[in-house]
Design a protein around this nucleic acid. Structure first.
Length: 635
RNA sequence: GGGCAUGUGGCGUAACUUGGAUAGCGCAUCGGGCUUCGGACCCGAGGGUUGCGGGUUCAAAUCCCGUCAUGCCCGCCA
């Protein structure tokens, strides 16, 4: 287990305090854990680390915090990375030994390079991330994009914490939407042109309008949908082909955003594999189900929820006493299907799938597998943890899912289903409904992921072409592409997942400050400085570490020493915006450092400062990678 | 009717899970800085009763209760 430089400093501070507390107040008790959790990053002007332990001890000691901190402070003996401890209005403030800490941070980065910041917390644990699961009859709009970007970032962050991550995309090819599109292909006159998902999505809007006006068409679509449930029917085979063609087009969007997956799971394969029947059998054997003979739910299979009240306060509402899993006509509800799918995810149900190759040229170079009627057997699923990137509107459905696991005795799995609920994306004055066509803008600038990327690219190219820093103009397109992807991804990821987003073109096209281009600029800038200095990273001499100051240089060291803490936090909270915040701090501090102290003409401090530039460059790159954002050497 | 989430300067947001010193950052506004390592930058100024009202606490943006606003959910629909 790797301990970050910051954590090491905190440990030293904790040791010092433990010794001092014992000496000053032998009658008191403060555990290492209490001391540890009392430590925070110090406010500027109060050293490097602060502890509020005196406030907690005040009650049991019946003394004023200021008096306690004074006594403890007086009893401290500096050791390790901490050079001094003082007290101020009740707080204990520790000052780090700059040279020793800088040495620790710089050497850790030199040693671990692209792995600096990563941990082995989740080593050996399989986790499935499900995202973005877009219906296979329309293009991704910017809401789906938010989902996909969160899924990609969370997957990267989990992987950086040592988890074995499986990226899955669930394709609901049996929904009414697909039946509608299927009907449209047969009955409307338009012929596919352009990108298939875009075309199909536009047609879907037309079919949907028609359904409202034309009762016969509406009835026929419903019959098609019923036939699709039978895997052997010609309609099922044809509809699957249509959906596959659409998914193929959607994966061009995946690829253009640099996103890859491991597996597509098709609803039709879940049905063919009889997952639902197996799941119901298991639930029944655990006495979690009921089959009422009369009353409101006569003929249904239901999941009673009274017992769920004990563990989820959301179930306290007395109107929700039950959830229907199978209707009286024998068809299953969404929640039932989802329970079955999740039993497969956790390996509770034996794997009935065969796997084929869907694509072999993804951005990460890996094959994209798909569930299929034929193909090879392989090890997918069997996860210990499942992260579902699904909108907040599905909160209740996800709770029912967890409840079903809990009620059937799979308490551990239930706790390991994580619903990463993100706020849905809207546009000023409207929604992005696929059905109603809210994603289509008559100005030609759509709210699709494809359209967004091409608009942002246009703007980026304008800026790039004006840049004097790019010597090789042939690279302009490539650079504009990288900058655009970064800008878009960062703009979505910097906002906490649970917050709703109202999309704005103005913000999407702003590349200044709080943005990926700002962070990428830091990288390109540091890279160029190192080139000019003809720098090769090597061991610094002891004397070099005496040239670390107390200004932006040490602040930078502090931040660099926290990278791993950030990666752990982002993972534990499932919040990529922890990483974006860190990157902004890092870029800002680097700029300040650069303005304040000359690197190449830094005299005796030159080697130390170059090492900081080199370190910042690496850490910036590592952290951007977690967000799926690449770097460019010039921009 | 019930439940969940959100509410922070004009706008977009961070800190809330785990209470801690002066609520951080960006945009916009105003003022300053390129003959010096990359100006997609930096420095400075103004702008806040953290929706509102109570409570707990030495200490509340953070925890508890109430209330208002916004969004979403509460089907044998999909």
């Amino acid at each position: 287990m790797t301990t970050s430089p910051n954590q090491q400093a905190i440990e030293d501070f904790v040791k010092i305090m433990a010794g001092a507390v014992k000496k000053a107040y032998p009658e008191s008790s403060a555990t290492a854990e209490q001391l540890r959790s009392s430590v925070t990053r110090a406010k500027p002007g109060f050293g490097d680390l602060s502890s509020s332990i005196s406030f907690s001890l005040a009650k049991q000691l019946k003394k004023a915090p200021a008096e306690i901190s004074k006594q403890i402070s007086a009893a401290t003996e500096a050791q390790g990375l901490i050079s001094a401890v003082s007290d101020a209005s009740g707080y204990l403030n520790a000052t780090m030994n700059e040279g020793a800490y800088a040495r620790l941070v710089v050497s850790a980065i030199k040693e671990r390079k692209e792995f600096y910041g990563s941990t082995s917390k989740g080593k050996g644990k399989r986790v499935i991330v499900e995202s973005p699961s877009v219906n296979p009859n329309k293009p991704w709009h910017i809401g789906h994009l938010r989902n996909a970007l969160l899924g990609d970032a969370i997957s990267n962050i989990l992987a950086a914490n040592g988890y074995n991550v499986e990226r899955e995309d669930y394709i609901d090819d049996l929904g009414l939407q697909v039946a509608e599109s299927f009907w449209g292909m047969r009955n409307l006159s338009g012929k596919p042109e352009g990108k298939f998902d875009q075309w199909l999505g536009e047609q879907y809007v037309l079919v949907n309008k028609r359904m409202k006006e034309d009762k016969a068409a509406s009835e026929e679509i419903k019959r098609i949908n019923e036939r699709m449930e039978n895997p052997a029917s010609p309609d099922a085979v044809e509809a699957r082909k249509l959906a596959e063609q659409c998914v193929m087009a959607q994966y061009e969007t995946d690829a253009s955003y640099g996103i890859s997956h491991d597996l597509l799971v098709w609803e039709s394969d879940i049905v063919a594999g009889k997952l639902l029947e197996k799941a119901l059998k298991i639930l029944e054997s655990k006495n979690a189900l009921q089959r009422p003979k009369d009353g409101k739910y006569a003929g249904c299979i239901i999941l009673p929820l009274e017992k769920a009240k004990e563990f989820a306060k959301e179930f306290e509402n007395p109107t929700e006493e039950t959830k229907v899993l199978v209707r009286s006509n024998g068809t299953a509800t969404y929640v039932a299907k989802d329970i079955a799918f999740h039993m497969w995810k956790f390996g509770i149900i034996e794997d009935p799938f065969k796997y084929g190759q869907f694509m072999n040229a993804q951005p990460n170079g890996k094959v994209l597998y798909t569930t299929s009627g034929k193909g090879i057997s392989a090890i997918f699923g069997q996860a210990e943890m499942v992260v579902n990137i699904i909108g907040t509107s599905q909160r209740y459905a996800q709770l029912l899912l967890k409840a079903a696991f809990r009620l059937s005795g799979y308490a551990e799995a239930s706790g390991n289903i994580i619903h990463l609920a993100y706020g849905e994306v809207s546009i000023a004055g409207g929604s992005l409904s696929g059905r109603e066509g809210g994603w289509i803008d008559t100005s030609g600038r759509n709210y699709t992921a494809d359209s967004l990327l091409s608009e942002v690219k246009k703007k980026a190219l304008e800026i790039v072409e004006k840049s004097e820093k790019i010597e090789d103009k042939r690279k302009s397109g490539e650079i504009a592409n990288a900058v655009s992807l970064g800008a878009i991804k960062f703009e979505f990821l910097r906002i906490a997942p649970e917050k709703q987003v109202t999309f704005s073109w103005e913000r999407a096209l702003d590349f200044e400050s709080n943005s990926a281009p700002y962070c990428m600029y830091t990288y390109a800038r540091s890279k160029r400085i190192l080139e000019k200095a003809v720098y090769t990273p090597m061991e610094l001499k002891d004397s070099d570490y005496t040239h670390i100051g107390r200004g932006a240089d040490f602040e930078l060291v502090r931040l660099l020493g926290e990278a791993q803490d950030i990666v752990e936090k982002a993972c534990g909270e499932h919040r990529p915006n922890v990483v974006t915040d860190y990157l902004l701090d890092l870029a800002m501090l680097f700029s300040r450092f650069y303005e304040q102290m000359h690197v190449i003409k830094g005299g005796e401090a030159k080697e130390m400062r170059l090492a900081l530039v080199w370190s910042t460059m690496h850490v910036t790159k590592n952290m951007l990678m977690l967000l799926g954002i690449g770097t460019v050497d010039s921009m």
